[in-house]
């Protein structure tokens, strides 16, 4: 029971990170693009007003996920920790560059193209490097001899599956982010920004769905067991496709962009939970499973109680954050308001 609660909670948080971080990463890229093409006053304002209060929260979702993972399934620390030293460092350095240069550019008094460049570009490389963890979890990229865990870099770099995941990660980031910013720009009443982000959403919708499809094709060769499990619940992936089509058609018709974004969230929720559910029971195929590597019941219950207490604290605060900034029309428009 604890293993199911644990993995569900963690997966929900990872999903939260996927959506929020995608918006953030993509926004950084679009912000850089706007700067380069001199569109500053159309979309950059919208992006900055969204990003400024929210950026710190994004990182915490990721930290929460891996700390929780170690808590519920301690052996993951040993396997992934040993194997991921090099790719983990790459991701960390990118996250570090992005986080600090955002602060430098935002609070650092001066517009600096180089900071913005780093900020925009790392936003695409971070999802690419983080997504390799999911790739590795499919098995075949780690050798375990005795207690010795090693990452097989050669296999990772030559696997079609691995590259498809990377491409899907990048296109998804750009797609999710553009669809959110379409909504946010419309809400802020910024017509130019809305048109531009609408265009980007439509541009990235094709590649996103193409690579999602290619994931199935390449996974079939890489991990047939997982592929077959996914086929068994194919309806969930069909729902994902339907959500995608609904979202894109709404955005195409410039109607109900908020609903469209919710459908984008649904699209990724169906796909992500379908993928995760069929990945079970493996945490790392075929070495770690949620049954054999779950923590003791005492710790599991303590973690779940801490989690519930934490949520009671966090949900109201996040609600306040959203109300004050994201869903506040005056704020989004950049008008001052006092209460």
């Amino acid at each position: 029971m604890i293993e199911y609660i644990g993995i569900t909670v963690l997966w929900i948080f990872l999903y939260g990170y996927l959506i929020i971080a995608s918006i953030d990463f993509g926004a950084g890229f679009y912000s850089f693009y706007a700067k380069m093409t001199d569109k500053k006053h159309t979309i950059r304002q919208v992006i900055d007003r969204y990003l400024s209060p929210v950026w710190e929260v994004t990182n915490v979702f990721l930290v929460f996920f891996f700390v929780g993972l170690i808590g519920f399934f301690p052996a993951t620390a040993y396997y992934y920790g040993t194997a991921l030293l090099v790719p983990g460092t790459v991701a960390l350095i990118l996250l570090a560059i992005r986080g600090s240069f955002y602060a430098f550019a935002n609070y650092g008094a001066r517009e600096n193209n180089f900071y913005l460049f780093l900020y925009g570009l790392t936003g695409l490389f971070i999802p690419a490097s983080l997504s390799t963890v999911l790739t590795i979890s499919e098995g075949g990229f780690i050798s375990v001899e005795g207690g010795d865990v090693k990452l097989l870099m050669g296999e990772l770099f030559t696997s079609p599956y691995s590259w498809t995941v990377v491409l899907l990660a990048i296109t998804s980031v750009l797609f999710i982010s553009a669809s959110f910013l379409t909504f946010y720009a419309k809400r802020a009443g910024d017509r130019d920004a809305h048109e531009l982000m609408r265009k980007f959403t439509l541009i990235w919708s094709g590649p996103t769905i193409l690579f999602s499809f290619l994931i199935f094709v390449t996974l079939r060769n890489h991990n047939a067991e997982h592929f077959n499990a996914m086929l068994e619940i194919r309806w969930i992936f069909l729902f994902s496709l339907l959500s995608f089509l609904t979202a894109v058609s709404l955005i195409y018709k410039r109607k109900r962009t908020g609903i469209a974004f919710i459908f984008v969230c649904f699209q990724f929720a169906f796909a992500f939970f379908g993928y995760g559910y069929t990945h079970l029971p493996y945490l790392l195929y075929p070495h770690l499973t949620i049954y054999e590597n779950v923590t003791s019941p005492e710790m599991g219950i303590a973690l779940i109680m801490a989690f519930i207490a934490g949520l009671m604290l966090l949900i109201p605060s996040l609600f306040l954050l959203l109300r004050l900034f994201i869903f506040n029309v005056e704020y989004a428009r950049g008008e001052k308001k006092t209460y």
Binding site: E56, V57, V60, V67, I70, T295, A306, G310, L313
Partner: peptide, 25 residues
């Protein structure tokens, strides 16, 4: 550590989360 001391480690992320949200506001 994951087996024995992950509780405060886990709660630390909540505390930081809480701080980050309110700092943003």
């Amino acid at each position: 550590s994951g087996h024995v001391i992950s509780l405060p480690l886990f709660m630390e992320t909540f505390a930081f989360f809480f701080e980050a949200v309110f700092l943003g506001i």
